[in-house]
Design a protein around this nucleic acid. Structure first.
Lengths: 327, 327
DNA sequence: TTGTAAGCGTTATCAT
DNA sequence: ATGATAACGCTTACAA
């Protein structure tokens, strides 16, 4: 910038004004500056600019569990889009559900002086937020509650969606509705199980009496679980509490040569490929991401009030046929 | 940092030494400093550190077409993993295949002083690299060639994979093998078409005589294309040159109630869900990402020689049954 | 081993 | 409208 100023025979400050697009500047000088910039191939240094007091990095940090998982990459994309529209770039990092890793990323991001943070809290929690010395940048928790009082939160209505799925299966005649999912240590699983139980109870069915499988970490394990449910004739319908459970169930159906009514949680690419298509409780993932980003940007603009909100976004039941009894 | 120095009654420089983990430092002072840091909640400012000469931002920039696309998010994840293992964070941005957008992102990333760039060049090219004033950080092009002479490139062997798929279909008796894919303006499509044509020619079949559909931008369009192929009995096998084409073909098969041998390009989640499973030419996406990141990091370490490499990674043919004639 | 002074590339203040 | 000067938070000669 100094070189540009010298070449254009103006002061440093005038160049600064020029590159910042300030208005009050002599057109003649502006031209000289523009020329000097082009000639010297000058490029401003945003990192240097950002350390000035009152200036910001215009970078947001996003911590998700796994960028390769379509659910999170869809969230990331939606966030990137909203952030980009207001000039923010996004640093994305995967916590792999590991609290220590998550904490390291948080520290790094704060040292980098990101303007704000969007966080999917890891399953295995790390250090408590109260132990993180202030100042902490504005934060939004996404997909799961985060345990920091001064932060907004965007969730899906996991319990509501699960309840709707359960009621649908019941309405079509099912009375032994199996829950096939991952560990209940996971917040979303716990919520889905809660919704499932609530629905059963309100239908005068005992949740305890229903088949329950909570170790479907992979579709392979889900397949095994569903296979034995079929073999023992233990269930007349299945609520698959995540993607992998749904896919595992499909595999099990194919091997067994028969199926029972099925509703899954979370849509997936292949859900409408089979015959019948797989009915699912669908989350509006883009909207979750967008809302999280908007909430954060509103705080950064100082527009948000003193109250922190927790949004619980509705789910949609998408019926494709798998909820029906086979003909 | 000044405050910490004052509180610990040492000089600024000693604190700097401490936070940078330098060895020669009096344990007594170190303790005082550690205490002061904890008390004041001091956090170093990496942005400020990075503007010093000889220092780097330890941030890499990644430009892909769409983070929500599993192909690119898988690439991003692999890159993030390798980068993270060496202390680099990743700024990810989606170009949406738009050259102007891509150029804006490049400028922003360079102003941010990222240490290196990994770029999936957009379909609609923007400004030429020769017009970007130096210094340009080390760069790696991924998935497609990028048009900058001083950069490494990591590609998949699109032509080879397509040729293998074509030969496989031929070997099983097919003589009218349709190519269903997206526009040949796209580098990867062009390459796949080239491989397909090469294979046909070497088998004494005329590529021109084969059914060709290059407007399968969505699975819906691909479905329409395949549906008419089936109706007119124009093809006895299909090479689906991307994911969406494969899925569209499956939909068409289902509606028509019959299928012809099919091999797709690029694996997808549901490929083994149907009966038969969909055979595909599979790219090792993780490896592409890892290799790109490693190439870039090697350059940043100054280890790479003066020569720029172009890697063409082999594809794998995964046979699941759809390549066979229906029984 | 520790401290002093200078400088990295910016922008803000305040005078002109 | 423009410019001299002082910050911002940090690291690196170089001296002590």
């Amino acid at each position: 910038m100094n070189d540009v100023a010298r070449a254009a025979k103006v002061s440093l400050k005038t160049v600064s004004r020029f590159v910042n697009g300030e208005s009050n500047i002599d057109p003649v000088l502006a031209d000289r500056i523009a020329e000097a910039i082009a000639e010297l191939g000058y490029r401003r240094n945003l990192a240097a600019a950002s350390i000035r007091p009152g200036w910001t990095s215009k970078i947001l940090g996003l911590i998700i569990s796994d960028l390769a998982n379509p659910y999170y990459s869809t969230l990331a994309r939606a966030i990137e889009e909203v952030a980009g529209s207001e000039g923010y770039m996004l640093i994305v990092a995967s916590s792999e559900e590991d609290g220590r890793r998550h904490d390291r990323i948080v520290d790094r991001l704060m040292e980098q002086r990101v303007d704000g943070l969007i966080i999917v809290p890891p399953r295995n929690e790390g250090r408590e937020w109260s132990k993180v010395p202030p100042p902490v940048p504005p934060m939004v928790f996404l997909d799961r509650p985060g345990g920091h009082p001064a932060a907004d939160t965007v969730l899906a209505d996991n319990a509501g969606g699960a309840a709707e799925a359960t009621r649908t299966l019941y309405g079509l005649g099912a009375r032994r509705i199996a829950f096939v999912g991952d560990s209940l240590d996971i917040y979303t699983m716990r919520e889905r199980y809660r919704g499932y139980c609530d629905a059963l109870s309100s239908l005068d069915l005992a949740p305890d009496a229903m088949p329950l499988s909570t170790d479907a970490h992979s579709s392979e394990q889900a397949r095994a679980a569903v296979t034995s449910l079929l073999a023992e004739d233990a269930a007349d319908a299945i609520f698959a509490a995540n993607n992998r459970a749904s896919i595992g169930a499909l595999h099990a159906f194919r091997s067994a040569g028969r199926r029972v009514p099925l509703v899954g949680f979370d849509d997936f690419e292949a859900a409408d490929l089979g015959d019948p298509g797989v009915s699912v409780v669908s989350q509006d993932i883009e909207r979750m991401g967008r809302d999280a980003a908007r909430l954060l940007l509103a705080r950064l603009r100082g527009e948000a009030g003193g109250d922190y909100v927790t949004e619980s976004l509705p789910t949609t039941l998408v019926l494709r046929g798998s909820e029906q009894l086979p003909t």
